[in-house]
Amino acid sequence: MATMDLIKHHGGEPANFLDIGGSSSPEKVLTAMRIICSDPKVKAIFFNIFGGITRCDDVAQGIVTALKDIDVKAPIVIRLTGTNEEKAREILSKANLAATTSMDEGVKQVLAMAQGGVS
């Protein structure tokens, strides 16, 4: 919810609110990506995870699987910190994906991508 607030604070417009909830699994992330990608208005996707009970490696695995299984057209910005963060980074780097650790930085990056898509 604070992610949405921060996107608006920086002048962006969130397309949706999607909380993956506690206790994570890669399947949850895959389902989330299916839902988000079904909205043609989405110009960029931002994953903002600070994992407690959510394990970052579960999320990373879900993102990698989603990119294989679903035709994701929008660019993705990933922010991952917290539980199993190192494992997550390994999974992402094997798939040539990068992740930031700062929420503010992530929001700025995703807004630049979304706005780049408009013009």
Binding site: M1, A2, M4, D5, K8, P14, F17, D19, G21
Partner: peptide, 17 residues
């Protein structure tokens, strides 16, 4: 306070939010 941009009537992640 989180939820400055939350639309009314929608539960935002938490049951109480």
């Amino acid at each position: 306070v989180a939820g400055q941009t939350a639309p009314p009537g929608k539960r935002m992640g938490h049951a109480g939010a």
